[in-house]
Write a protein that binds this DNA or RNA. Structure first.
Length: 481
RNA sequence: GGGGCCGUAGGGUAGCUUGGUCCAUCCUUCAUGCUUGGGGUGCAUGAGACCUGAGUUCAAAUCUCAGCGGCCCCA
């Protein structure tokens, strides 16, 4: 009977090996998202989840604010603007929600709920850009966007309302300068994900998979525990495609009118899906200290009445709070074990326990969420010991995640190899880069080509499995979300 | 886009095949009290549910249809 109860309690959160169930249950139990909102594809941020979002987005803001300006454009886009760019329309027309009525009156010009904001922003850029001295413009906004997804929706990953779309839109004088900005964007995103201890792969998307209306698309991907990759950032070189349709021109040094060159790049709450999925375990969430809503919980170990222990705990909590650490002192009337499980579910990076044994030695027990390691430290040094561990935790979380990603990139030479490895992760295979070959490869293995990765992993010597030509390019293939 | 499975308290479930024995089972949760306290303490009392609509029937959680919602597989 007692054993059975233990099993049932453990079964509250499904094992992470059952990723899909684990993910859905965790979002609910750990109070990230409430998935019970009665409209398909729309979900509710719990206050706790929203706190994680706030801290995560504070990082992206910090990184962008160095040389971008934050602005805010309207949610509604008139059909007349939305329909200007042919490629862009083709890419989004099946996913757009339309506002057709104001009260009982039908609108003369339908209004689109932005699926992305190019067509909301660029009519204004036409007005704002006059001279080369106005350039570059680097603006971002963090907004909700709407896409009528017909495939299966999934909280934080595939949504009909993306609640946390960070989109940047830049304007430059030259194509090369814009290309440099695209590189800069992927650098910013990698730094952002490094802070979240999430390893990434940057690659150039194949021609057939680029953003509608772009010259080319760079993408940032990561690997989820179930072996599928998740696109968690993109940067697009728009060339002067949109500048031509929206008539964005500047006067150059010689007094001639030139079309501007543009980029746009985005990140969404998929970043938080990755944060949760990559670090979480069978016990629940695991957060890097920087984004943890609660960074440390103090748990008194009481035997009968003990003002001494309570006092010591309060003192420690106060000292840590004074250092700006987000501390929770759990004096609730529960057994310590129950508290451990609860705070572990919430991903609190450090737990400090103080009981009679510790107090006798003027010490505290300090437990890491990521590794489970338990150590005794002197009470006098508690602040330094905690700070040191925060840095260790982020580092070792990143290293662990990097190791796990590396272990699941498989070098392949044949399409059969690829097919065998793809259920477990990412396949790396020579590819000539040609469209015909690429599409045939995707067809043959039933997975997508993410692209040719930046850096070493994108180079190698081999033959393209379709055309048998020698090539120095290595592509990566995977099942994608 | 095609196919399959499913919807019962806040969460997880039993009951549905063969309609009535169901003012609906069990676990968890929540509330109150006592007890307990270094990994989910125990006891007592109490609270809380058949997705929506239409239909069949003397009778629907159970059968039929539609809607809404969820999950899985294939393209």
């Amino acid at each position: 009977m007692a054993e059975k109860r233990t099993e049932e309690k453990k079964a509250v959160l499904p094992a992470k090996s059952n990723f899909s169930e684990w993910y859905n249950e965790l979002l609910q139990i750990a109070e990230i998202m409430d998935v019970r909102y009665p409209v398909k594809g729309l979900y509710v941020w719990f206050p706790f989840g929203f706190d994680v979002r706030k801290r995560t987005y504070a990082i992206i803001r910090e990184l962008l604010d160095k040389d971008h300006k934050e602005a805010l454009f309207p949610l509604l886009i008139p059909e007349t603007e939305f329909m200007k760019e042919a490629e862009h329309i083709k890419g989004f027309e099946n996913e757009v929600y339309w506002v057709t009525h104001g009260g009982k009156n039908e609108l003369d010009v339908k209004l689109a709920l932005r699926p992305t904001s190019e067509t909301a922003i660029y009519p204004m850029y036409k007005v704002w850009v006059r001279s080369h001295a106005d350039l570059p413009i680097k603006i971002y906004q963090i907004v909700n966007t709407f896409r009528y997804e017909t495939k299966h929706t999934r909280p934080l990953i595939r949504l009909r309302e993306i609640t946390s779309f960070k989109e940047a839109h830049t304007v430059h004088a030259t194509w090369d300068e814009a290309a440099e900005q695209v590189k800069e964007a992927t650098r910013i995103y990698q730094e952002f994900y490094r802070r979240l201890a999430i390893p990434t792969i940057v690659s150039k998307r194949p021609e057939w998979d680029k953003f509608p209306g772009a010259d080319y698309t760079m993408a940032v991907d990561t690997l989820m525990p179930d072996g599928k990759t998740l696109q968690i950032g993109t940067a697009h070189h728009l060339g002067n495609n949109f500048a031509k349709t929206f008539d964005i021109k500047y006067e150059d040094l010689k007094g001639e009118q030139q079309y501007a060159q543009q980029t746009c790049y985005g990140i969404s709450e998929r970043s938080i899906a990755a944060l949760i999925s990559i670090h979480g375990d069978d016990k629940g969430l695991v957060f890097p200290p920087e984004v943890a809503p609660i960074q440390l919980v103090v748990i008194p170990i009481l035997f009968g009445k003990s003002d001494e222990i309570t006092g010591a705990c309060r003192d420690v909590a106060d000292r840590l709070k004074a250092e700006g650490i987000r501390v929770e002192l759990d004096e609730s009337d529960e057994r310590p074990g129950a508290k451990y499980y609860r705070w572990e579910m919430k991903g609190v990076p450090l737990r400090v326990e103080i009981g009679p044994r510790d107090l006798k030695n003027n010490a505290a027990t300090i437990v890491r969420r990521d590794s489970g390691s338990k150590e005794t430290v002197p009470l006098d040094n508690i602040v330094e010991e905690v700070k040191k561990r925060f840095e260790d935790i982020r580092k070792s979380m990143f290293e662990k995640a990097q190791r796990q990603l590396k272990e699941r990139i498989f070098n392949c030479n044949t399409l059969d190899d690829v097919k065998n490895k793809i259920p477990d992760g990412i396949a790396r295979i020579p590819w000539c880069g040609g469209r015909e070959c690429g599409l045939a490869m995707e067809e043959a293995v039933g997975a997508g080509i993410l692209g040719i990765p930046e850096g070493e992993s994108g180079r190698g010597n081999g033959v393209c499995p379709m055309c048998n030509k020698e090539t120095g390019n290595m592509a990566i293939m995977a099942k994608t979300y």
